[in-house]
């Protein structure tokens, strides 16, 4: 049954299902009411979705959405005052801290997958991206098909690495060294690229645009290729948590309906504090229409 639920969730990815799932109130709302604190888990460098700004505070597109969810939770619980706390997370600490209840919600840039849904739950999709390649403009690489004999780098364990491997196997592309170079994080991937160890870095295109805009010489770099993976991002909460999920999904729906979501998007992406200049894609616009459930 769990398996079926996860499979359904993953295949639909839309917000239709969660609200209809059997009512099961979780520990999160109770904890927020008792402690009068709302704890947001965030990342340090997922620009511009969830990162630590120049002032040392967590900020970004995902954080802004979660602050709205915090307000809604406060209202729902009729609390006179509620503190919002921020906890920085790494990919290694996020699931243990979420399941242990140290954080109430994780607001970053995580792809909603079926496998991951076995451990935690995702709110409605609020961002869509997919895998592309970051290359030097003069490299002549236009897509994965041009990667024969070239070196490809990916961040370990990312959905992008997995998707690239599937494409490479399917198309019979022969990479230099026979396999993808795996690194720990974005900055090391960029270092590999910059030093000429690798010819292309595969990641979510929004991340690649961010990296290129932050490079020494942004004009040297280019994001290429058609999407070869589908990466819907969602906020993560503990499983079996329907009352909290309702607050989250309802907040997202209302933000879209009221037009506020577009404003938040423009604040971070058009052109955004890091000058990323990434207009809302047609796919994401369609997705927003789908998550904007009626009252």
């Amino acid at each position: 049954m769990k398996l079926m639920f996860a499979a359904l969730l993953g295949s639909l990815t839309l917000a239709v299902l969660p609200m209809a799932a059997s009512a099961q109130d979780g520990p999160t709302m109770k904890r927020i009411a008792e402690t009068k604190t709302f704890t947001i888990g965030h990342r340090d460098a997922s620009v511009p979705l969830s990162y630590i700004g120049p002032d040392g505070k967590a900020q970004g597109y995902s954080i802004d959405i979660c602050l709205k969810i915090a307000e809604a939770a406060k209202e729902e619980l009729k609390l006179d005052k509620m503190e919002v706390k921020f906890v920085p997370l790494t990919p290694q600490t996020r699931i243990p801290l979420l399941t242990a209840g140290t954080v109430d919600i994780i607001c970053e840039s995580s792809t909603h997958t079926i496998g991951r849904s076995r451990q935690i739950a995702f709110l409605s999709t609020t961002f869509l991206t997919g895998s592309k390649l970051l290359v030097r403009k003069d490299s002549g690489i236009k897509s994965l098909d041009d990667m024969n004999g070239k070196a490809l780098v990916a961040a370990l364990g990312t959905t992008n690495e997995k998707a690239a491997q599937v494409e490479i196997d399917r198309k019979g592309i022969k990479l230099k060294g026979g396999e993808i170079i795996k690194v720990k994080d974005h900055s090391q991937a960029m270092l590999n690229l910059d030093q000429g160890r690798a010819d292309a870095y595969v990641s979510d295109d929004v991340v690649l645009f961010g990296l290129a805009s932050a490079a020494k010489n942004p004009a040297e770099w280019e994001v290429v290729g058609p999407y070869f993976s589908y990466d819907p991002y969602g906020m993560m909460i503990a499983r079996n948590n329907d009352d909290f999920r309702l607050v989250g999904d309802a907040t997202i729906a209302r933000l879209v309906s009221s037009g506020e979501m577009q404003k938040i998007y423009d604040k971070w992406f058009m052109p955004g504090p890091t000058n990323i200049n990434y207009p809302m894609s047609d796919r994401l616009k369609t997705n927003m229409g789908l998550v904007a459930l009626p009252e």
């Binding site: 990919p91 243990p96 991951r116 076995r118 370990l156 364990g157 997995k162």
Partner: peptide
């Protein structure tokens, strides 16, 4: 770590 990223089965 890679298994953790794919499945979230950290422990």
């Amino acid at each position: 770590r890679q298994i953790e990223e794919y499945t979230f089965a950290s422990f």
